[in-house]
Structure formats: structure tokens, C-alpha cells
Design a protein around this nucleic acid. Sequence first.
DNA 1: CGGACTTCGTACCGTCCGGTACGATCCGGG
DNA 2: CCCGGATCGTACCGGACGGTACGAAGTCCG
Lengths: 197, 197
Amino acid sequence: MPVPKGATLDPAQTRATILDTATRLLYERGLDGIGVAELCAAVGASKETLYRHFGSKDGLVLAVLEARSDRVVRWLRDAADAAGEDPAAQLAAVFDALGRWYAQPGFRGCAIVNAAVQRHAGAPRDVAARHLARHLELLTGIARRSGAADPDRLGRQFLALLEGATVLADHQADPDAAALAKHAALTLLRQETVGPA
Amino acid sequence: MPVPKGATLDPAQTRATILDTATRLLYERGLDGIGVAELCAAVGASKETLYRHFGSKDGLVLAVLEARSDRVVRWLRDAADAAGEDPAAQLAAVFDALGRWYAQPGFRGCAIVNAAVQRHAGAPRDVAARHLARHLELLTGIARRSGAADPDRLGRQFLALLEGATVLADHQADPDAAALAKHAALTLLRQETVGPA
DNA sequence: CGGACTTCGTACCGTCCGGTACGATCCGGG
DNA sequence: CCCGGATCGTACCGGACGGTACGAAGTCCG
């Protein structure tokens, strides 16, 4: 029964559906925790369709990770922008957003960093490096606008707190990880601006 | 040719050899990146020997992770102890030790956290939770001896910096991650002790 | 209406995996 | 001296995996 009775037959839509389901399942089960066959069954698509759209499982993984990186980066940037102009408020907003993420059921850490751990050589590692660099851009910008003496260092300290909080929230089941990191980040921010002034 | 010509035939030694080689290879390649057959070939042992000692691949992985957790925890504690009595010096010593670890060729992040990512359900996850709790014990102790107002919170902030620095050193190839985290940790320590005093 | 395109379902391929079985061989202790 | 245990090498098993092939059936567009 090819092409179910009243299907829309829109390749872009098909691709998006595969991408969405794969994003969820690859995150929940890990890159090696689910096979192409089961993925196709969950999507409701055939293997041929998946392979026509993505070429290979690695191609699908790559597409999933890049789309997810874009979404996450935009989400954090929006959270910062929504907090107004004050750098401290923006920083707090970023960590508050993280806290809401950690509290979501099914949270398993950062999908992109996790993927890089599972494929330590290859494309996912590069995606993760770019992903962290984009986070760093946001955080360093906040540090710079706050007038910190060394915004580059401060931004990387913020990033360390962000990633560390994510690890704690995942492996320690610590729901307060984001609040802790926020407090630490704000303390560092104050110290780097008011302190040496 | 069973039992090579002049073998020692010491079960404990055989077990230790398997454990050592497996520790290295499972870290380098990932838990799913190497099979039991190749592992046995690298050790110079037969599958039967491996299965007699560890029961299953999961059993081997568990033994590897627990031994590694013991070693790492002891290593960090020794680094702190060697720094004398001053909490700030102990904290600095911990992050300096981390920095030397990050600089080692073949560094790929924390093997135990990585394993928990690859086996998100099951024993490795429990080992990782205990591992982080043991680190927390050390760091909270330093925070408490420093006279911090909230040593529990400060210790968890230290842990977030530790884990975050490890992520940065791995995925960002940032050789200064440990120094950044040390600076941040010392700033937090000063702020939590001198500040509200 | 008709051809190009998309999708489905299924079968299939070669490969690798974790785990078991078994005979042969050599060490160690009584 | 000899028996029990440790080990090797190899063969084997069932299953899962990534990927391909192909015919049938439906949609979309000119």
C-alpha cells in the first residue's frame, strides 16, 4: 500500500516529520540506541524514503544535530533579549531558561554534547564545537556589555558554568543546578565589573 | 596453544591486565566503539577468559568504571591534601591537577560521565552519580573549612565549574579551561567568605 | 489524461556483535 | 606424578544492524 490513501505527498513535509521524530528518539535513546528500521517504524516512513532524504544514518544524525543547535542557540538568545538591556538581567534570564529546560521530563543533558561523546571523532564533534562557540558568543557579548575587564575570560567562565550545570542537572538530578550556576555567574559578573573599578 | 609457553597463570594478574587494557580502549573508542573480540585480541586473552572473569561486557564495563572512579577520586584528594591546610590552596591544587589532566594527549573528557551518556539507563549512570557525589564531598569539605556561609551551595558551584571545565577542555580544545575555572572558583570562595563577613 | 515523482512494504545482503562450546595445552599444588 | 584449574584458539550461534532493490500504488503537474 504505497502512498497511503489521502497523503499530502509533500517531500519537505516528509523530511520535517522524519527530522522531528528522529530528533526526539535519538535524544531519548542515544545515537546507537535505536536502529534505522525502528526509527522508520516510529516515523511511519519506509527506509527508502529516509535514505532518499538523508543519504545515511550519519547524514540524518548530522541534520538533526544542526537543526537542534540552531533552535537552542536561538532559544537562549531570545531569552537574553527578552530580559532587556541590562547585562546582569540577561545573564540571569539565560540561566533561568536553562532551569526550565532541566526541569522538563525526559531531560538528558545537551543532545549535541551527548552526540559528540558518542561519536568522538567525526561530524558530531564538529557540530558540538560550533555549538559551544555560539553559546560563547552570546555569553562573551553579555560580559563585554557589562564592562568587564576581561570579557573573553568571563564569557568562558559563564560557559563553563552553563555546561557544568547541565552535567549536574543530568547526572546528579539536581534541579537547582541552574540556580546555583546563575548565582555563581552573577557573583563573577559583579566581581569583574565593580571589583577592579 | 593454550596457556602460552611460560605464562604466570595468575588469575588476579590476568584480570588486572584485562581491566587495564579495557580501561584504555573503552575510553579511547567509547563503550560501543570496540567489541569484545577486538578487546580480547588487544589484551592477548581469549573470550572465555574475559567472560570467566567479568561475566559479560556490561560486567567488564562496570568493573572498569568503578576502578576508574576510585582512582580519580583518590588522585584529586591527594592533590588537595598535598596543598596543605589552606582551603584556597587546596581548591587551586584541585584545578591545577585538572589542568594537567586536560593537557594529556588522548584526553576525551571524564570517562565515567561519558559512559553514563552512552548508557543513559543502567549501571554506568549510577556509577556516574556516585562519582559526582564523591567529588562533591571533597569540594564541599573545602568550602566548609573555608568558613563559607553556605558550604553546600559553594561546593556544588565548584563541582559545576569542575564539570564545565572538563566539557570545555574536551569539546572546545580549550587548554586554559582549568585555569579559568580555578580563577572563578577562587573568586567565589573569596566572595562567600570575606564578602558577607 | 499521462508521465514524472514520491512513498510504501517487503525482502534481501553482508557484516558485525555478544555470548557459548569444546578440545588442546600448560601451570600449580598435593 | 598427577589432577584440577586456567588459558588459548577456533568455530559457532542467533540476532541486530546499516543499506539496497524492486514492484505496487498513489499524488502532482503540465
